[in-house]
């Protein structure tokens, strides 16, 4: 469904991504792990067509993104939902308008249907009365949940989550994970989830990719990671460090 091949990207004199290749089969959930963060978010943005790699290719749903023009890219994006690391909620719109925005842009549903969908989404993320609030009136956890609702509003077959639980308290984190799990069980979604919360994700992701300094260290299932003896993998998986 999503394929990265030989991705290389430079930032100044350094290679932020250096020869990364892996595939995400349809219907599977991939956990993207690694220190720092620049490489992981960048990969996600490449898959969304927001950034172009310097070398290598990205394919989504069998189509090479480099060959698409803006119109075709826009069509493809109708199938993708994205949850941004810093919420990226439109601060000049209410919560309701934020969630309705992708639906309105798609232009498929009537206003009444859109309102109904927004309603049910807000109930699902446990914010049943947040319609008229503005993003800057909400807490971090609430904003994350609104962003989640906006990302899945169109029920897209592909969803990208950039650090869905960053900076959240444990209670809210587990709420988010429950939503991710719930989403997975009810629809055939393919997703890539960037996170540092390995424990929370173990139940959700089918396989994982560990990146370090732009290179792919390991790509495998949970068992592969548990059994690996490589130091980098152990450090990250078990949460230990040398010093």
């Amino acid at each position: 469904m999503i394929r990265f091949e030989g991705i290389r990207k430079r930032h100044g004199a350094e290679w932020v991504l250096d020869g990364v290749s892996f595939e995400v089969p349809a219907g599977s959930q991939l956990g993207l792990l690694g220190p720092g963060g620049a490489g992981k978010s960048l990969l996600l943005k490449m898959a969304a067509g927001l950034v172009r790699p310097d070398e290598g290719s990205v394919s989504v749903m069998g189509r090479d993104l480099a060959h698409l023009n803006e119109v075709e890219m826009a069509e493809l994006r109708l199938n993708i939902g994205m949850l941004f690391q810093n919420y990226a909620l439109f601060d000049f719109m209410t919560v309701e308008e934020n969630i309705a925005f992708p639906l309105r842009q798609e232009g498929r549903l009537s206003e009444a249907e859109i309102a109904a969908r927004v309603d049910s989404l807000l109930k699902e993320v446990d914010l049943p009365r947040a319609h008229k609030s503005y993003p800057n009136q909400l807490s971090g956890g609430m904003k994350k949940r609104v962003t989640f609702a906006r990302a899945v509003a169109r029920k897209p077959p592909i969803v990208f989550f950039d650090d869905p639980t960053a900076g959240l308290d444990p209670v809210t984190s587990s709420k988010i994970f429950r939503m991710l799990n719930h989403g997975r069980m009810h629809t055939e979604t393919t997703s890539i989830i960037i996170t540092h919360d390995i424990l929370g994700l173990q139940g959700i992701c089918d396989h994982f990719v560990l990146l370090d300094h732009g290179k792919l260290v390991l790509h495998g299932t949970r068992e592969d990671f548990e059994r690996s003896e490589r130091r980098m993998v152990r450090q990250f998986w078990d949460g230990t460090s040398d010093e």
Binding site: E70, L78, M82, A88, D91, P102, Q105
Partner: peptide, 14 residues
Amino acid sequence: VTEQVDALRMNNAD
């Protein structure tokens, strides 16, 4: 810088 412009693009708004 708060990625709202990226979010616009993702939601098919130029």
